[in-house]
Computed example of a mutant assay.
Amino acid sequence: MPEVMFQGPDGRLEARYHHAKQPGAPIALVLHPHPLHGGTMNNRVVYTLYGVFQRLGFSVMRVNLRGVGKSQGRYDGGVGELADAAGALDWMQAINPNSGPVWVAGYQWGAWLGMQLLMRRPEVRGFISVTPPANHLDFGFLAPCPQSGLIVQGGRDEIVPEPAVAKLVAKLNSQKGIRIDYRVFEDCDHFFVDHCDRLAEAAEEHLTLALGRDERLKLAAD
Rank of each mutant, 00 (worst) to 15 (best):
V193E: 10
A25Y: 04
R125H: 07
Q147R: 13
H18M: 02
L172S: 12
M119P: 02
V63F: 01
L150Y: 04
R216Q: 15
P101E: 06
W109H: 09
Q116Y: 04
G87E: 11
V130C: 02
K70A: 15
H32T: 09
D197E: 14
A20N: 10
L199A: 06
Y75I: 06
E201N: 02
A221C: 00
V102W: 00
P132A: 03
G38P: 06
H34Y: 05
Q22K: 15
L211V: 11
E205R: 14
G39S: 09
S129R: 00
D10H: 12
E158W: 05
K167G: 12
K176M: 08
S99P: 05
W112Q: 05
M41Q: 14
Q54Y: 05
A20G: 13
V46N: 07
P133T: 04
N98Y: 13
L118K: 06
N96S: 14
Y182P: 03
F139H: 06
G8V: 11
A220L: 15
Y75P: 05
L118R: 04
L137H: 01
L56Q: 15
A111V: 02
A25K: 02
M92V: 11
E14K: 00
E3R: 15
E215M: 08
V45K: 03
G126S: 13
E215A: 11
G126C: 09
F6M: 13
